[in-house]
Computed example of a mutant assay.
Amino acid sequence: MKNIVILISGSGTNMAAIVQAAEQRQWSDKLGVRVAAVLSNRGDAEGLEFAKNRGIPVVLVEHKSFASREAFDLALQDEIDRFEPALLVLAGFMRILSPAFVQHFHKRLINIHPSLLPAFTGLNTHQRAIDMGCKFAGATVHLVTSELDHGPILAQAVVPVLPMDTAQSLAERVLSQEHLLYPQAIEKFLTA
């Protein structure tokens, strides 16, 4: 069985989309793939309740309990390793990971970013796309490297930027595409 471990920091909507896709598409039976655990750096992450209700083990490793990013990453890495992941999925995990952590999970660590990378790395992607007059925005699934929001692109979804769009309305449309794109990219990655 190939284990997926998902990291979240908040609502966990992409995590929920992945879990639901795994159930609906019977990843366990058809692909030998399962979501083995959900980890968070925040005890108030809403997505933890969804995972618990689905019977998925949840682990909390609060970053504020550690003196440095490296110490947090090492503790997080130890918890993740207990599940022997074939794939580590960042799904709204709002921490910059240390190069050592990224290297440890080399070629089995993926992220989804709410822009058409390489455009608009970092935060405030939707407002920046609107401010630049972009006609299209979207989401990108990519392998994680030690450079923020870079790495080989695995999949993208394109969303038009409408004349009356706000950052919020654009974010909502992009997120709906993320929920479709991320499970598809994971399935393709694990069966390639």
Rank of each mutant, 00 (worst) to 15 (best):
G151Y: 02
V158W: 04
D131R: 13
V159M: 01
A157L: 00
A171L: 09
Q177F: 00
K188Y: 04
L162H: 15
L170V: 05
V174I: 15
D165H: 00
T166G: 03
A137W: 00
H142E: 02
L162A: 14
V174N: 03
E147F: 15
M164Y: 05
V161A: 01
L181K: 06
I153S: 05
S176E: 11
A155V: 13
P152C: 09
Q184A: 15
V174C: 06
Q177A: 11
L143D: 02
E187V: 03
F136Y: 14
E147T: 15
A167G: 14
Q168S: 14
H179T: 04
A155M: 11
H142S: 04
I153H: 09
G138K: 05
M132S: 15
H150T: 14
A185V: 04
H150P: 04
F189D: 03
Y182M: 12
V159Q: 00
P163D: 09
M164S: 15
D149H: 08
E172D: 14
H150Q: 13
E187H: 04
T140S: 10
H150A: 14
E172H: 04
A171S: 15
V158R: 09
H179P: 05
H179K: 10
I186L: 10
E147A: 15
S169V: 06
S176G: 02
L162D: 08
A167N: 05
S146R: 13
V161C: 11
L175N: 10
S169H: 08
F189H: 11
E187F: 03
A155T: 12
L162R: 15
L180C: 12
D131E: 15
L154K: 10
L162Y: 14
L148Q: 13
A155F: 10
V174H: 03
Y182C: 01
L181W: 08
P163T: 11
V144A: 08
V144S: 04
F136I: 09
E147P: 12
V144R: 03
K135Y: 08
H142Q: 03
I186K: 09
A139V: 08
F136V: 12
V161K: 02
Y182E: 00
Y182A: 08
L175K: 11
D165C: 01
V144E: 04
K135F: 07
E187D: 00
P163W: 07
H142K: 06
P152N: 13
H179A: 06
A185I: 04
V141N: 02
V144P: 10
V159G: 08
E172W: 00
A155L: 10
A139K: 03
V159C: 09
S169P: 08
P152F: 10
M132T: 10
G138I: 11
L170H: 01
D165W: 00
V144M: 11
G133E: 05
T140N: 07
D149L: 05
S169G: 09
I130E: 00
F136W: 12
S146A: 15
A155R: 13
V158Y: 05
S169R: 03
I130C: 06
V174D: 07
L154F: 06
Q168T: 11
L143F: 14
F189I: 11
P183T: 00
L170I: 02
L175V: 08
I130H: 02
T140K: 08
L181M: 06
L162C: 14
V161H: 02
H150F: 12
L154M: 08
G138Q: 07
